[in-house]
Structures are given as structure tokens and as C-alpha cells.
Amino acid sequence: MVFRKNPGMTLRDDIERHVPAIWRFSLSLSGRPDVADDLTQATCVRALEKEHQFKGDRPAIGWLVTICRSIWLNELRSHAVRKTGGMETAKPEDLIDRSNNTEMNILASQVYTRIMTLPEAQRATVELVYVQQFSYSEASKILDVPIGTIMSRLSTARTALADLKDDGHTSKKGRAR
């Protein structure tokens, strides 16, 4: 029997609650809001199919983003690349989520654009650690890379954002790995 912290909550409830987080991670992988819709939907369907594999002893979101990444790498990425001619070519106007009814302020908009123009692996790392607050070690397990790679990707992202930080004490130097 699957153990759940809240016996009244079904996996479907968990999935529904985490839809925004799954979509943001899907966006970080695919770089495009429309592809993120498809990836989110595929993740929800697959998670329900694999419910028997969900142990319920830790938050569902880690399991869901792992499924999401697997579908992206194994099924949707090649299709999306074929359709768009490459995943790094989305125009800035295509990056905007047009369904967002809250105006981003100027700084948030600049941060968003800088992050979204990073390569896929760095976007995904930034999303997991900075937005979803996964620890470095959790992110390293989800993305299947060493912690050092996580730190290097975050370092590159910080460099991209350095001049937007308000204290002005940042270095422009990033480290390669």
C-alpha cells in the first residue's frame, strides 16, 4: 500500500497542485511556453500511469520533475527541435507567457529574459535551485550530474545576472567546467 502523509490527498491532487511548478520546469527545459504546455500535460498523464511507482514518502514534486525531464529527453525534445529548427532560437517575444495576467516589473522581465537565453541545462538548474528551492544535492540527483556541475551552471547564471544585482559588488567573471 502506498503511504501518504495526507491520506485524503490523491496523486491527482498532488499533480494538480504542482501544475505551475511542472510548467515552469518544462519551460526551463524547452525554452518555449507552447512546448512547456505539451510537456506539462505529458508529465501529468505519465505520472498517473506510473502511480504505483510513487512511494509517497517525500514530496511528489521531485518525482514529477524527474518524469518531466525523462519525457523531455526521450520523447519530446527531438520533436520540438525538428519543429522549431533548434531549441536556442526562440525570439524574445516568443518567450513571454501571454496567459500571464500579472505584469512583470522591469527588473523581473530583465531577469526572466537573461535566464531564458541561457542554454537549456543552465536554465533547468537555475529553475530547480532558485525557483523551486531544491538543494544543490537534490538538483544534482534530478539532473543526474555532479554537484560541481550544478555549482558551475549556477555560477554562469549569476554572471549573466551580475549587473542586475543592486549592490554592485559582483564580479563579471564566471567559471567554466
Binding site: R12, I15, E16, V19, P20, W23, R24, L27, P33, A36, D37, T40, Q41, C44, V45, L48, D97, R98, S99, N100, N101, T102, M104, L107, A108, S109, V111, Y112, I115, V126, E127, V129, Y130, V131, Q133, L154, A157, R158, L161, L164, K165, D167
Partner: peptide
């Protein structure tokens, strides 16, 4: 990390309500 908050702020409003509604409606 001084960058975590600014990135979370930028992405925290996404996706929009309409999009969330459609995505939730599509869950089998």
C-alpha cells in the same frame, strides 16, 4: 545567495491563471 530571490520573483508569477486552468483541466 543574492540571486535566488530575484530569479524566484521573476518566475514566480508564471504561468498565468488562464494557462494553469487549461493545464489542470487537461489532467485525465
Amino acid at each position: 545567495d543574492p540571486y535566488a530571490g530575484m530569479v524566484a520573483d521573476a518566475f514566480g508569477t508564471l504561468p498565468g491563471d488562464e494557462r494553469i486552468k487549461h493545464l489542470r483541466a487537461a489532467i485525465p
